[in-house]
Design a binder for these strands. Structure first.
Lengths: 238, 238
DNA sequence: CGTGACATTGACGTTGGTCAACTACCGTGG
DNA sequence: CCACGGTAGTTGACCAACGTCAATGTCACG
């Protein structure tokens, strides 16, 4: 295989990527994609694999293609807060400082593109649409985080879990993943650390929602949203 | 005064603005500033004034020059979460949707630049450095919010208040505001809704920190950080 | 001074955390 | 194919922390 062939192949990868229309890559035209493909590094990872640790040198930005990743921060005594579950099409690892102020770990196995910050920034200089798209995605992220702050600061456990299930279902629906039944890739401990609760409270709350007929739980990782309107009423907290 | 004079005057406003080096405006060179000045609307506001409500049409982006603004969300029963206290040099009101999903109210009197989303986006097309700067500022915002989520989800009241005081002092120091004693522009109820607590708990926690010699409270809005290291130890939660 | 809003303090109750036991599930190996 | 062991999830009893409700204190402004 000669160089020319190799370049075409790499471009092909981006052109046929399932996550392209969702991710920031959508900002580039087909004929610009080879430039993106040229600076992209393909990474596959297994469940529970650490992608980077809190305090690592922040040299890369990541674009998730498949799987689920959790971003988390720890207190010295081990208390943990998961700030986000990253889904396909979303990017993570963006910081302006030298070090990542949070950790990224795989929830499930999956695949992502790694870009050197430097190279991606250069590409953005040449194709401003890329930075513009990343800006809008960052704004969406901020909006989601405001919603999550309301949840963490003011909602009861039932309201938190109802919000969580609905939001996750909506996010999966948006990226074209069937959501009935809703599959939870993360375990109860992850859910607890995302919602600011303990595993026990999460478990009790699942039971409570089940007994009230709002959901069904054929398996612990599979949720049927039996009464979405009822859940929404809880989530918006009447 | 003729048109030419007026244009020069408007440009002058941006060139001499105290917040320019802090805000996204720093992305533009002096000779590009008139373009920014041309689309800028000057707004002064009084304490407690509503800048926009949750659900208003999102037609503008705001750049705070002076004063303090709170961004908040409400649940139907009145529970409130303040997601951010905006300080001079920061911008707010950025969303990708049609409506603001949160409210913005003045904490103190102050001054800001209002930009139509459309006009600012056009300017960003012509000067990519602007979008790039806004992108980095958005990333910083996300980083601050992750820190705040850890606070809301996992910290105790004492840890929350210690973190809050240190973070606020650091932010003021960065923009060149003297921080000894630290002046709190917001009342206890705002602090409570920012930290996910009640006023009573906030008040008791102020008392506790005072009795432990970590702070002094000459007036309820004035805090002397008597033992910053002790506060930091609490904030990082040993 | 007097008034009203904001802040603090106290008494008490509820909610969600802690600790411990129990159960279900899954993979492994006999 | 079943027994076993380990992990994840659920349930129960108990308790402490924070919220609630109510009273009191403080300060700024007329």
């Amino acid at each position: 295989m000669n160089l020319r062939c190799a370049r075409l192949d790499r471009a092909e990868v981006c052109a046929t990527c399932g996550a392209r229309t969702l991710a920031f890559c959508a900002a580039l035209d087909l004929d610009e994609l080879p430039e993106l493909a040229a600076i992209r590094h393909d990474v596959t990872f297994g469940a529970d694999q650490e992608l980077f640790a809190d305090g690592d040198a922040a040299e890369s930005i990541f674009n998730l293609i498949a799987g689920c990743v959790r971003l988390s921060k720890l207190l010295p005594d081990g208390r943990r807060q998961i700030s986000e579950f990253v889904l396909p099409g979303e990017y993570f690892g963006m910081v302006t400082g030298e070090l990542y102020p949070f950790a990224a770990e795989a929830v499930t196995e999956g695949r992502l593109c790694r870009f050197s910050r430097r190279a991606l920034d250069d590409l953005g200089e040449r194709h401003p649409a890329l930075h513009r798209r990343m800006l809008h995605m960052a704004w969406d992220e901020v909006t989601r985080m405001q919603e999550q702050q309301l949840l963490l600061g003011r909602k009861t456990p039932v309201e938190r879990l109802a919000s969580f299930l609905l939001t996750l279902a909506a996010r999966y629906a948006r990226i074209g993943v069937q959501a009935a039944p809703l599959h939870l890739p993360m375990n109860r401990s992850d859910v607890a650390d995302y919602l600011g609760l303990t595993v026990e409270t999460v478990s009790r709350t699942f039971t409570r929602l089940t007994k009230d007929g709002l959901i069904r739980l054929p398996r612990s990782a599979e949720v049927v949203l039996a009464d979405p309107d009822g859940l929404a009423a809880l989530a918006e907290a009447e």
